[in-house]
Design a protein around this nucleic acid. Structure first.
Length: 832
DNA sequence: AACCGTATTAATA
DNA sequence: GCATTATTAATACGGTT
């Protein structure tokens, strides 16, 4: 059925109308597709879609070849495995939960129609000429749907009214709806502004014992003015909502006073969901559809079944579930998109019954995760618990624009994106190590280029430092032709908070060095400065991986893209001066690095004079190994330092920029003792008392969330170790049972007791606090860029004199074998 | 062999 | 004339440890 519509246009499954969603049944598909095709034909977008289509076709071809090679024997064996797994899954089938998926009907469009009655009987859509977010059901009759560009929609439906998006409004409405959700499941999981999953099992359990009064809702005249309507609904809720969560029905106020008719809802799942939808409509004048089922996958399919303004339930019986799945097209299942649909269709699989019939074959053609997923689907299985909001893993911003070919403009845009992203990151108190640049050229070809820094970043400068290098490589790779872009995006991922593994990094410095203004330069500005430090003295103290590796990787990447000319350019750059167009176009982030002259070992508490980080690091290693403390710290001689510096291969990456920064900086020169800072073992407060001998540990609560429990640590032996495990957000490696629940928490950064009992909140507070300090100190220690580094560079270079040494030399030296990082890895299991 | 970083693709709303 | 944005997961590849 599905295939014959495509007729000769087998290549157009991605361009043709997607009518598998609600409100689009019985349309004149061929006519609609013809219009879409005519409008699209010849465009760059279309060409690219064709290309992608062909790639999918090739994938399918390969798959068919593979299929042809499968023997009966293999199939038999595969079937056995499938059967075995099926058995296991069947045995663990869970039908006891009542999961609800609620989906607002044509949400954005519905909101706009509600607020502008003019639109009510017109075909309309929300979005722009270039892209639509939603269309109302009237417009869907014309084939106008979400994710369709407005100009094509206009061709399909010349009278279409396109309303620009009004996200603040949708957010506000969404908040209203979510208030209702939370009464049925305080842990509901919002998927977007208009969609959520709820687990109403507990609610239903309680509801059984509720008197009618608690299930009674008044009908407000929904046809009168919206605002009055909504406020009426609002006040109604305010009266009722406290009641709904009271355990004692006696506290229930009488509802008889309210005006109008009342509706009493029953105690069943259907009734509860009907009530919820009723309340949503009362409160917002918008309708929602819902699905009720024993798991999320089914609930989602169900919510689509009677859309709009309807609901559907699959009772918790295996038989019924299987019956329901049988005829369900695979495409209806969330997670099966057009590519998967097409691949399965090539194998003769359209509905879930066929899916289960072919499972053995699928297990031979698809990866484990893929066919396991297929198996789950075919058995009507899905997630039965609504997981708490897991931590975000990346944050990005991207922009589409008219063709842009000017490099200057591109750098400038890149900076803007970094700026925006930095703001967003800081709003959430996040820092990440990987910066990804996304480019889409005018031919709609998308490229992403990533670079992972040593340290997590969150400022515009830091992100841009990496992003602009990635951009430069791309610009150079096509030069002298310009890059013709239509989109650029920047993403930061690899957040440190999500990292249990490398708990050290900033932490030690952040906490141990907090006093001096210098600490800012060391700890706070993350990537570049830390790198500068490392590169200048080769210390790997704070380095989880070796710089050399990174650099060589990046170099290889560059070599691949840039060939020789670029290489020359690079060596010129690193060798003589910094005049480099991209670097200039991108005002760099300059650092005044201080040499750490006075260091206090966090292990033995000995103050060490006149050592660089390497020696310091070595010392700490010794201490950590438990061997005797060196009385005379080693003093690395300057020439060795310079070797180290010189041996760095030139590169136009952010690495090399950091390297440059350090070379520029006069204070990096060992001969020139400058500001000295000390690193206190444990921070002291004004009174000289130990201030932060806290010890934190991460405890899993609901799988993901981490907990801090504060514990006083004895200062000497263990406290140093404990302090060392402290990351910026106070997560530690050790798993310990937490007794922190209910105890009052004091922020170790601002020393303010926190009112909250919510450890996640507390954690966030500490993060914020820390970040604020970080920012403050950073700004203090890094006044706006000066130009004094130019002569400095020369002087440093003058001292170094000779030409760079071969890269091989550098590696051996100063990599501290027993870094604190490793120490903690190997000791993570032991309690302190 | 396990794991990491990079790049691409698919999917969803 | 005109084809988004943000996020996640899977997967593949070429590394390293």
């Amino acid at each position: 059925m599905a295939s014959h519509h495509q007729g000769g246009a087998d290549l157009l499954s991605r361009i043709a109308l997607n009518d598998n969603k609600a409100g689009m049944e019985g349309l004149d598909r061929d006519k609609i597709n013809k219009i879409i095709l005519e409008t699209s034909k010849g465009s760059k977008f279309y060409e690219n879609e064709l290309k992608k289509e062909q790639q999918v076709n090739q994938r399918i071809e390969k798959m068919m070849e593979q299929k042809a090679r499968i023997t009966k024997e293999q199939l038999k064996q595969a079937q056995a495995e499938v059967d075995k797994l099926t058995c296991e899954l069947e045995r663990s089938r869970e039908l006891g939960r009542v999961i609800v998926h609620v989906d607002m009907d044509a949400f954005y469009a519905a909101v706009e129609m509600r607020d502008c009655p003019e639109l009510k009987d017109k075909p309309m859509a929300v979005g722009s000429m270039s892209m639509l977010s939603t269309s109302n059901y009237h417009a869907r009759r014309f084939g106008v749907r979400a994710a369709m560009p407005g100009f094509i929609a206009k061709k399909l439906c010349p009278n279409l009214v396109i309303v620009p998006t009004n996200f603040d409004k949708y957010r506000a409405v969404s908040a209203q709806v979510r208030e209702i959700f939370s009464e049925y499941d305080p842990h509901f999981m919002p998927m977007s502004l208009d969609e959520a999953y709820l687990d109403i099992t507990e609610h239903l359990e309680q509801r059984k014992h509720w008197p009618e009064t608690m299930r009674t809702y008044h009908i407000c005249d929904a046809k009168t003015g919206n605002d009055a309507d909504r406020s009426a609904a609002e006040s109604e809720r305010d009266e009722l909502s406290p009641v709904l969560f009271e355990d004692s029905p006696s506290s229930s106020p009488s509802l008889s006073g309210a005006d109008g008719k009342a509706e009493v809802f029953g105690t069943s799942a259907e009734e509860a969901v009907r009530e919820m939808r009723f309340r949503i409509e009362q409160k917002t004048s918008l309708t929602a559809s819902a699905g009720i089922a024993p798991n999320m996958m089914l609930a989602k399919v169900c919510s689509d079944k009677n859309k709009p303004n309807g609901q559907y339930r699959i009772p918790p019986e295996r038989q019924v579930v299987m019956e329901f799945m049988k005829d369900l097209p695979v495409r209806k299942v969330s997670g099966v998109g057009k590519v998967t649909e097409k691949m399965l269709a090539a194998l003769g699989i359209v509905n879930c019954d066929q899916l289960s019939q072919q499972m053995a074959l699928l297990s031979l053609l698809f990866s484990g995760t893929s066919w396991h997923n297929f198996l789950h689907i075919s058995l009507g299985l899905g997630s039965t618990c609504i997981e708490r909001d897991s931590e975000r893993k990346s944050m990005s911003t991207e922009r589409t624009f008219g063709e842009m070919s000017d490099a200057e403009e591109q750098y400038s845009l890149c900076r803007d994106l970094c700026h925006d992203l930095a703001q967003d990151l800081q709003r959430e108190g996040l820092k990440g190590k990987t910066v990804t640049l996304k480019l889409k050229n005018v031919k709609f070809e998308v490229k992403t280029r990533a670079f992972t820094l040593q340290y997590a970043v969150c400022t515009e400068e830091e992100i841009f430092a990496a992003a602009k290098d990635l951009l430069k490589v791309e610009i150079d790779s096509v030069s002298p032709q310009p890059l013709k872009l239509r989109l650029m995006g920047v993403r930061v991922s690899g957040f440190i908070s999500a990292e249990d593994k490398k708990p050290l990094q900033r932490s030690i410095m952040g906490f141990l060095q907090k006093d001096g203004s210098d600490s800012g330069s060391f700890t706070q500005c993350a990537g570049s400065v830390l790198k500068a430090q490392e590169d200048s003295d080769g210390a790997s103290f704070l380095k989880p991986q070796s710089t050399e590796m990174k650099q060589s990787f990046f170099q290889r990447a560059q070599l691949k893209r840039l060939q020789q000319q670029e290489q020359e350019q690079m060596s010129v750059m690193a060798g003589t001066d910094t005049t480099n167009n991209s670097a200039d176009a991108a005002p760099s982030f300059k650092i005044s690095t201080q040499v750490l002259q006075f260091l206090t070992c966090p292990v033995c508490n000995t103050e060490m004079k006149d050592v660089n980080l390497t020696a310091f690091n070595n010392h700490i290693d010794e201490c950590l190994k438990g061997s005797a403390v060196d009385n005379e710290p080693t003093h690395l001689d300057a020439p060795k330092e310079q070797e180290e510096l010189n041996s760095k291969p030139p590169a136009s990456s952010s690495e090399s920029r950091a390297l440059k920064s350090s070379s520029h900086d006069p204070s990096c020169n060992e001969e020139k003792p400058s500001t000295s800072i000390s690193v206190p073992l444990v921070e002291t407060d004004e009174d000289g008392d130990f201030k932060t001998p806290f010890f934190s540990h991460r405890t899993k609560i609901n799988g993901k969330r981490s907990v801090i429990s504060k514990k006083k640590m004895p200062v000497c032996e263990s406290s140093c170790k404990a302090s060392l495990t402290t990351t910026h957000n106070l997560e530690a490696v050790t798993e310990m049972s937490s007794d922190s629940k209910g105890s009052s928490l004091t922020c170790p950064v601002c020393s303010q007791p926190q009112s909250t009992d919510d450890l996640a909140l507390f954690n966030r507070h500490v993060d914020m606090c820390l970040n604020q300090e970080v920012l403050l100190e950073f700004r203090e220690s890094h006044p706006p860029v000066g130009h004094s580094d130019e002569p400095a560079l020369k002087s440093v270079r003058g001292q170094q004199g000779s030409s760079p040494l071969p890269p091989s030399k550098k590696i051996k030296v100063l990599s501290t074998k027993h870094t604190i990082d490793k120490f903690f890895k190997s000791n993570a299991g032991q309690k302190v």
